[in-house]
């Protein structure tokens, strides 16, 4: 088996050591630091990006909160104004209504007064007419001219009965 040919041992050992040491130095000084630098750059870039993303997210959340707060506030204000306007409208309406009712009542009272006066007037007229009619009737029926005061007394008595 060629592996056990010990005359080849020194050369293999020597060249193994040489090559391994050369590779070790190259890795240690050149290759690995470069790769490490690339990985580190990427990692810090990702960290920065993540930090910036979460900062922006905070900002966005705050902006959203502010927007929604002002929206709610505007909403509330609109509600208040609507309510105030509605109340004012209701107050005006009821004021005008009361006004109307008062006016109606006044007119009703005036009308009633007028009616009462008219009624009085009519009653007075009735007494005069009745007096004339009674005079004419008595004159025609019994040929007696009844005097005005006696006439009036009789009519008043008749109307007094009826009332």
């Amino acid at each position: 088996m060629p592996q056990l040919d010990s005359s080849t041992f020194p050369t293999q050992i020597v060249w193994l050591v040489i090559c391994f040491i050369v590779l070790y130095l190259l890795m240690w000084k050149v290759a690995l630091p470069r790769i490490a630098a690339v990985l580190e750059a990427r990692r810090s870039r990702i960290d920065d990006d993540l930090d910036r993303a979460s900062a922006l997210k905070e900002e966005a959340a705050q902006a959203l909160a502010a927007y929604e707060a002002s929206l709610a506030e505007a909403h509330a204000r609109a509600q208040a104004e609507l309510r105030a306007a509605a109340e004012q409208l209701a107050a005006e309406t009821s004021a005008r209504q009361a006004d109307l009712v008062a006016r109606l009542k006044a007119e009703t009272a005036a009308a009633e007064a007028r009616i009462a006066r008219a009624k009085q007037q009519a009653l007075k007229n009735i007494a005069a007419v009745a007096a004339e009619a009674a005079q004419a009737a008595t004159a025609r029926l019994i040929g007696v001219n009844v005097g005005e005061p006696a006439l009036r007394k009789a009519i008043d008595a008749a109307m007094g009965d009826e009332e």
Binding site: A53, K57, A60, A61, L64
Partner: peptide
């Protein structure tokens, strides 16, 4: 209402 209004913010948060 807040959560429903901003699904993208929550999604971003979860991804972060």
């Amino acid at each position: 209402m807040k959560k429903g209004d901003s699904p993208s913010l929550d999604d971003l948060d979860a991804r972060l």
